[in-house]
Design a protein around this nucleic acid. Structure first.
Lengths: 234, 234
DNA sequence: CAGTGGTCTAGACCACAAG
DNA sequence: TTGTGGTCTAGACCACTGG
């Protein structure tokens, strides 16, 4: 009458190993048996043990090195993963009605600082896009974005009032790498006005830059309305 | 004269598939060949293709379903991963000298709201710990923590002036699950004083609760000094 | 040098779900 | 029903690195 089936195969081994670590059968810092020994103990192939242990090492529970063997991490570094969907899906995923509004969209010339950040030449043409995203009509976040025109030429012919720049770029501008930075900032006068909050209010902010190979695709700051929080489980 | 060696094996396949997706050889939403077909094309075993594609599916680039096959995701959901180390290592990792200071540590009785959040009975004994973490002597973050004594009895005999509660718990109190919440908050009078900032300053805040099975291990709020940011790459 | 994890193979069976 | 991905196996070779 047990409701949920117990895991089998490599997942069962993974859970058993994790349980033995938590139970201090293998205390932090100690070596655990080799893959071959565990395969014998669990009565499975070594590849199955490898699959189980590799994921535990990725998750920070184990330190593995050739020849040295596998050791229980002394200070396990837990990792939190956050999905970064298109803002529309983020809002709809919270069960609210999404809408967005293009505030401005104009061409500018990159100044020296921007050119250096994105690896452009000074004076390169960039599209500056400002937009509001709303949930059930209330301000959800404010997006301030720069797109180098040369790297993403199609952006000029996109109707950014119909599809937000955020979603258009996800669909049409692949990138190979990017960096993210989350911080807390005080709302400036402009942000306070568009977000409908007091100047100086604490804003959860995401700054992101992405590249496709060596070409910058976009730089964006997303300022969430007060009350926003980013959740995850570990 | 190429400096770095090209990936081989499953990583080479993974990069090739990713390149074909980015090049729109397989546009978003379309099916890609089956594992068996790709194995033939790449001249390797199906398990090798499986390894490459499974990770791309985990990363959000592909949607895979038995019988239906593998499809390129229309809106790839990029995932950002943040390591959550012990605060001491986080500070030292930034090349700064770490120190911490126990502000207060006393036993309290859980009120109704707290008991409900953590699944305790009302009136259960909890340890309330407040501490400052410093980097090069300057405030780094302020920690306000609750630990149910029954679930973590050893905490009573720990010297939390020598080892912070943060690190003591990571070393001694395993947990099976937890939830995280990042937000931006305005500093209250107490926080402003201990962090040395103005009241109302924007604080990057982490709220975390962890459980070991059904027992709550700890609930903590970490308020970072103004200027802090959490970085990651994708 | 030798022991450990990292990877690959060829084949097999299974679980799931589309048609 | 049947084609697809998910997993396992037994064996093999390789890469790295500690002794």
């Amino acid at each position: 009458m047990s409701a949920a089936g117990e895991p089998t195969g490599w997942q069962a081994i993974q859970e058993d190993v994790l349980a033995r670590i938590r139970a201090r059968e293998w205390p932090p810092g100690t070596m655990i048996p080799t893959e071959a020994e565990l395969a014998t103990e669990y009565g499975c192939a070594r590849a199955t043990v490898n699959r189980a242990l590799r994921e535990l090492a990725d998750a920070g529970y184990l330190d593995r090195r050739r020849k040295a063997g596998t050791r229980v991490a002394a200070l396990p570094v837990r990792k939190a993963t956050f999905a970064i969907p298109v803002i529309r899906l983020e809002v709809e995923g919270r069960g609210m009605a999404y809408s967005h509004e293009l505030l401005s969209c104009r061409r500018e010339a990159a100044d020296g600082a921007l050119a250096a950040r994105l690896g452009l030449r000074t004076g390169a043409e960039v599209l500056r896009i400002r937009a509001m995203h709303r949930a059930d009509g209330a301000p959800y976040c404010y997006e301030d974005r720069l797109v180098p025109v040369a790297a993403v030429p199609g952006i000029l012919s996109a109707d950014l009032r119909t599809v937000s720049a955020n979603e258009w770029l996800v669909r049409n501008a692949p990138f190979t790498r990017g960096d993210l930075e989350f911080s807390a900032r005080e709302a400036g006068p402009e942000e306070a006005e568009v977000l409908g909050c007091a100047p100086g209010a604490a804003l959860f902010t995401l700054d992101r830059r992405t590249w496709n190979g060596s070409d910058a695709v976009t730089e964006v700051r997303i300022s969430y309305a007060p009350g926003y929080s980013m959740k995850s489980e570990i």
